[in-house]
Amino acid sequence: MKRTKIPFSTTLCLVLIAFGGSVAMAQTSTFNQRQTSHVWKSKHGNFQFNGKATKKEGNYVTFRTTDSFEITLPVKYLSDEDLAYLKYLEGSGPLPPGITAAAGSSSPGTTPPTGGMANNQGPSTDDTAMNEGTTDPAEPMPTEPETGDPTQSYAPGASVDVMVDGKWYPGKVIVVRPSDNHYYVTFNMNGQGRPAWIAASELRPQKAATTSDTSPMPGSSDEPLESFDFKGIPVTAKKEIGYDVGPMREGDTLKLRYVSGKWKSWGNLASESPDADAPAGGDKVRLAICSVSGGNQAQTLTLVPGGTADTPFIWQADKDYEKIILQINDPDKTFADNPERGVTYAIAIVRAGP
């Protein structure tokens, strides 16, 4: 498969034209950046991305994604919830339910309007921004025969490998288009950053984050346990110990955020996301936080709900645990019979003070 490189700014200009024409002179309102990063979605669900609203000019609003790209879109194409959130950011409406305001801010508000032309150039094509968040190998990965899973879904910000001409290159998801399971990604090809819309069948979770290693995090009962920030980990559905987190002490806090992948605890096709609001099978596809002591069977402590790609799930240890593990919530505990595939979560631990 050969691809023609199209500048990101050109792509977004074409999107703006398709959305309804040019941007005229308009007053500009700049949003306070104390707002938290938010998952912005279109009215009809054909795209979504993570970022902050930076300014509004007439009927257009500009965003900066968590990967430092700038996107300008017509306001009318945002979901009703996001339109309400924009009103809150402007100081003209309440905070919509389910959205968290920045700490110490009852309403971020905007700066006074200024005149100016709306930005219709789309994201920056600066190589530094384009390469941000990806590795930079001198050569592509070796040719491999496997392809991506066309049924797998990815969240904005997920680290992925991109298939081009039979070779995999490391990249990151910027914008999600659920309508046809396509993703706008940036990836490094022979040391150069490139953006493109890629089908799920030509993506896979980044190889570095999908190994079968289930060793515990650093630390043991004889060593001080340290806090660490979010890092991607694979969780397999084929074993009781889907991932070994390790020991946790009373007061330690575990944070989990869904990144990518689908699995099931029955049947032959791994087709359900544990992060969906209402997945087929319900709790049978949820991620379970369990404790293991000695040679006993794992005891489920709690289930991780859906929606963690937007808001991480937080669990705090109520006592000392010899070992905490993650597993698919398989009711019959026949893990080896589950369909192949696993999921990827980002995990962080905040250790309690002495």
Rank of each mutant, 00 (worst) to 15 (best):
S260A: 12
L203Y: 01
Y243H: 11
S105A: 05
P247E: 03
S79P: 05
E57D: 07
L256A: 02
L203E: 01
V350P: 01
A278F: 05
D337V: 07
T100H: 15
A346L: 11
P216I: 00
L203F: 02
T211D: 08
T334E: 11
F19S: 12
P224V: 13
I325K: 02
N120C: 06
A309F: 12
L301H: 01
P170Y: 03
P339I: 01
L225F: 05
F31N: 05
P195E: 14
V343N: 00
P137K: 03
P247V: 03
T210V: 13
G295M: 07
G21V: 06
A196T: 09
V15W: 07
P312M: 15
N268C: 11
S215W: 06
N188D: 09
G193A: 09
F63C: 11
P339N: 10
R351Q: 05
V185R: 02
K55M: 08
R249F: 05
E223C: 02
L303C: 01
T143P: 01
W40A: 08
K43A: 09
K264V: 14
A280E: 13
R3L: 06
P140C: 03
G295P: 01
G242H: 04
D165W: 06
E272N: 11
P218A: 10
P140S: 00
D82I: 07
E340T: 14
S79G: 10
Y258N: 04
D165S: 08
P305K: 02
T134L: 10
